[in-house]
């Protein structure tokens, strides 16, 4: 950026007051935002960090422990098993979900789909269903006693594997999340496809490119940015997995433990265990892990793009 010449002129004249006034004018514009930002964003984070430096016990009261809680988190097998679980979830569920969303977006965009608008709405609709309602609904279907799985077993005299057993419950949650978020991701991809200039398609046609070539040479490169955004959102969403396991816990308490995901662990520590300090520490460490992973993915994505 070039130095703004007019700004330099009054300074040379020795008239500094207008300049100072102008610098305050900037703060007045930013001020309201900064005040709210500090109140709703910085203050809770600062308070969490403050909490994480203390330890409150039923016997002995509250003491300042410095980094002890952080040391404990880093050595906490419950925390790490929860992190491994959401990482596994991330590694399997996110690619599946994004791939399906991508195929749906390409199908809708191809213009060859009959009833395109209906299809688009139908795929997006699950995203409009609140996660709590969706999970309750799926939980009912998963039931082997009175749910859909139970009915199927009864009707056909078979025994389907129990979707709420400890071995399968993570996959069952993945299914719910995929169902919920395909439409949302489809919409991101679809909107990215809509901004591709039609002239590109026209020239591809003139060059004699087939549909597959159009997809690989025009559509997928155009989607790269959207794909990166969707991936980062999904990483954050996976690491913050809470609603679905929390609600399914009431019908499968033995399969979904109180430390099933890092967020659920922090919640249980805080609300059942009254360990606000340690809970805050878990939340901060998990927040840092999420930030680092999301940042690494973004850096990689940008580099590939450039």
């Amino acid at each position: 950026m070039a130095t703004p010449l007019p700004a330099a002129v009054p300074a040379e004249n020795g008239r500094r007051r207008p300049r100072r006034r102008r610098s305050w004018a900037g703060w007045r514009f930013v001020g309201p935002f900064l005040a709210i930002f500090a109140l709703v964003f910085l203050a809770p984070v600062a308070y969490s960090i403050y909490l994480s430096l203390f330890r409150t016990r039923l016997v002995g009261g509250t003491t300042f422990v410095g980094p002890d809680n952080y040391e404990q988190v880093l050595r906490d097998p419950q925390f790490w098993s929860a992190v491994v679980r959401v990482t596994l979830f991330l590694a399997v569920q996110v690619p599946v979900m994004l791939l399906i969303a991508l195929l749906v977006a390409l199908a809708v965009d191809s213009g060859r789909l009959y009833g395109r608008n209906f299809f688009r709405i139908a795929v997006f609709l699950p995203y409009a269903v609140p996660a709590v309602v969706a999970t309750l609904m799926w939980g009912f279907m998963y039931g082997t006693q009175f749910g859909l799985v139970g009915n199927v077993n009864e009707a056909f005299g078979i025994t389907l594997p129990d979707p709420l057993s400890p071995e399968l419950v993570l996959a069952s949650i993945g299914n719910i999340v995929t169902w919920e978020f395909i439409g949302y991701n489809m919409l991101i991809f679809y909107s990215a496809l809509r901004v591709v200039p039609t002239s590109l398609y026209e020239s591809a046609e003139i060059d004699g490119a087939g549909q597959l070539r159009v997809i690989t040479s025009i559509k997928l490169p155009a989607l790269r940015g959207a794909l990166l955004i969707a991936t980062i959102f999904s990483i954050i969403g996976s690491f913050q997995l809470f609603n679905e396991p929390s609600i399914l816990q009431s019908i499968a308490p033995n399969a979904i433990t109180t430390d099933f995901t890092p967020n659920l662990y922090a919640y249980s520590l805080s609300f059942s265990g009254q360990r606000f300090d340690y809970s805050a520490t878990v939340a901060i460490v998990m927040g840092l892990i999420t930030m680092v992973v999301a940042y690494v993915v973004q850096l990689r994505g940008m580099r590939e793009r450039g």
């Binding site: 400890p166 308490p253 033995n254 433990t257 109180t258 430390d259 249980s268 059942s272 265990g273």
Partner: peptide, 17 residues
């Protein structure tokens, strides 16, 4: 209160494994 909240994490395993 806390102990009961982790019953299913531990003893609950007997019901599903």
């Amino acid at each position: 209160v806390y102990a009961n909240s982790v019953f299913n994490d531990t003893a609950g395993k007997a019901y599903v494994s």
